[in-house]
Design a protein around this nucleic acid. Structure first.
Lengths: 177, 177
DNA sequence: GGATTATGTCAGTACTGTTGACGTAATTTC
DNA sequence: GAAATTACGTCAACAGTACTGACATAATCC
């Protein structure tokens, strides 16, 4: 494994750049931004013995109360077996409850409890603080640009997932107020 | 485990919203954007038997050729043991080579090979394409807003890591061209 | 010459994800 | 009403990526 064709192992000493029309600047910024964005809640989660997967489940159950297991799998893009462990823990610790679907009794609608709502808020708080700080000197136009950009980064066919915000309270992204 | 204080298990039926001053809109957009942003290279990596960790190592070795193991650990924010396996695989497959540090012979400077450079480019290409599409109708001002935002999302004390782009070729983010 | 530093490595563990298979209850279809 | 499908749960095995703790080696610093 050590002495093959020596030519193939010649080190390249020049840095890769945006030369090839590749946007390394934003690729890298996105990596750093997300790394630190997720580091905030990770600290809190550790106290509960939870991981990032628990956070994601908790977030979406709070955002779309009553969503079914299948819908949650679709949003998270993980398998049923992968969700099972995490969801079971959240149910056993009374952060989430399951209710039988009203129309289709096979379905399990997922709802947060007061405890689950509180944890979701606690996890989101430092993230929101970070966003607010990042937008500090920005106007509405700049904020809109950023929202538009992030939305455009999502796969077109999955963009529908974003706007599924229950009509009950919000009425902001629904256009039907 | 099923029949505790029933009050604690009462489902909350209303969605969490931006009411509490928490910016759920951007939190969620950021999740979806990053989920799909990383899904592009994941597909390619699978063909090589590599994972996301290999991508990150490959990216930074190409971006900052000659960086040491310690510097790489600092950028990735993982432990030495965690890096070891991934780095060893990339070296064994001739994507990366190690050179003894010129001044300090304890150090191992990491460089990409032609093969490693090619793979890094192949992985970045779909990501860059996605970014270009997302910025399609945006002007320079909008792009600047987005870069500023992403940079501001990074921990202030770690923001220095971003601008470490070798002087050799780029000269764009260095201000010393 | 002794302490520190940079790196490598071994062992054990945790979390999150995967595939495949099987079971049960409810709904739909014919 | 029987058969197929759907929604969900669960068991087993495994992979990738991260962790802590411990120890080894070589080079550098003091």
């Amino acid at each position: 494994m050590t002495d093959q064709s020596p030519a193939a192992r010649k080190p390249i000493r020049t840095a890769i750049t945006d030369e090839d029309g590749i946007d390394f600047a934003i690729i890298e910024l996105f990596f750093f931004a997300y790394r630190d964005f997720t580091s905030d809640p990770d600290q809190i989660l550790a106290d509960y013995g939870f991981g990032r997967a628990h956070h994601r489940v908790l977030h979406f159950v709070n955002r779309r109360p009553g969503l079914t297991v299948a819908e949650l799998l679709d949003v998270l893009k993980i398998t049923k077996q992968s969700l099972a462990r995490v969801l079971k823990q959240l149910i056993d610790t009374d952060h989430i409850v399951q209710l039988q679907g009203p129309r289709d009794r096979r379905q399990r609608e997922l709802y947060p409890t007061a405890k689950g709502r509180a944890l979701a808020l606690a996890l989101a708080r430092p993230q929101s603080r970070r966003i607010r700080a990042a937008l500090e000197d920005s106007g509405a136009a700049e904020r809109a640009s950023i929202e538009r950009f992030l939305e455009a980064m999502v796969d077109p066919e999955l963009r529908a997932q974003i706007n599924i915000v229950p009509a009950q309270t919000s009425g902001k992204r629904n256009g039907d107020h």
